[in-house]
């Protein structure tokens, strides 16, 4: 097969700009997210409930560092059959429709907005402006199966699979630069589009449990069956030795 030669202008007007655009859009997105996110106002009842759940979980996990009496005292406070916190509290199940709550609606819109703008607008613009270029060649041979992945919108059957088209180069950058954002922006950055997509799919963005009485019941059960196991047995001896 004949060797292909690319115009060196493609390098400076397509190949390099695509990487720079992808990277800088991610950074702009991170700072926009910080700029636009305001503190959520949570109502008092909800906060109390979620803190109680959190505390109970901590007791379950770290109760092994507490003396037995302390552990039982805390367990009793939560799970006593007559006066335990989880038993006594009666909450009406408030499965709120997010559509009816304007505040949640705005938050959701804002989050979607910030994710969709780069995905649709930048992606669309890149597809339009840089359509149909071959950018580069990956420095290793690939099999025929990789062609649809690396040569989006260049449908040439006889072309070697190692050539990369501009649309695919953008997508490769989108995924490959993820860990670079961790390096540049810190661990929990907002630039990571793919992570946001995963969150949306699994519904992990909703951290507050919807039905609080159900959560209480489950937590009550799991705390009840937790046995105390003293982890620091003989700790004085092992420190002295």
């Amino acid at each position: 097969m004949a060797e292909l030669l690319l115009d060196s202008k493609i390098r400076f007007w397509v190949f390099l700009p695509l990487m720079a655009i992808t990277f800088l859009v991610g950074i702009i997105k991170h700072y926009l997210f910080i700029f636009m996110s305001n503190d959520k106002t949570v109502d008092k009842q909800q906060l109390t409930d979620s803190q109680a759940l959190l505390r109970s979980r901590l007791i379950r996990e770290n109760g092994k560092y507490l003396p037995k009496e302390s552990f039982l005292m805390r367990k009793n406070y939560f799970t006593n059959e007559d006066s335990g916190f989880f038993v006594k509290q009666k909450r009406q199940s408030t499965v709120k429709n997010p559509m009816s709550d304007p505040k949640a609606m705005t938050e959701m819109l804002k989050g979607n907005f910030l994710n969709m703008i780069p995905m649709v607008v930048i992606g669309g613009w890149i597809n339009w402006a840089y359509a149909g270029f071959l950018c580069t060649k990956v420095p290793f041979p690939l099999t025929f199966r990789f062609k649809p992945m690396l040569q989006k919108d260049v449908n040439l059957v006889s072309l070697d699979a190692s050539w990369v088209s501009s649309a695919s180069w953008y997508i490769i950058n989108l995924f490959g630069l993820r860990s670079m954002y961790n390096l540049v922006l810190g661990e929990n950055n907002a630039a990571d589009q793919t992570k946001a997509m995963q969150d949306q799919m699994s519904g992990a963005a909703l951290s507050m449990p919807d039905d609080i009485s159900k959560a209480f019941k489950a937590e009550n059960e799991s705390l009840t069956i937790t046995e105390h196991k003293w982890l620091l047995k003989g700790i004085e001896q092992s420190f002295l030795n």
Binding site: L5, T136, I172, N173
Partner: peptide, 23 residues
């Protein structure tokens, strides 16, 4: 394995930028 992704990206990028035989 997670580092391999970053490596491939930078390898391809710099290879495309520097090696004249393909461009």
């Amino acid at each position: 394995w997670s580092g391999l992704q970053t490596y491939l990206l930078f390898w391809t990028f710099l290879y495309g930028m520097c090696i004249d035989s393909i461009i």
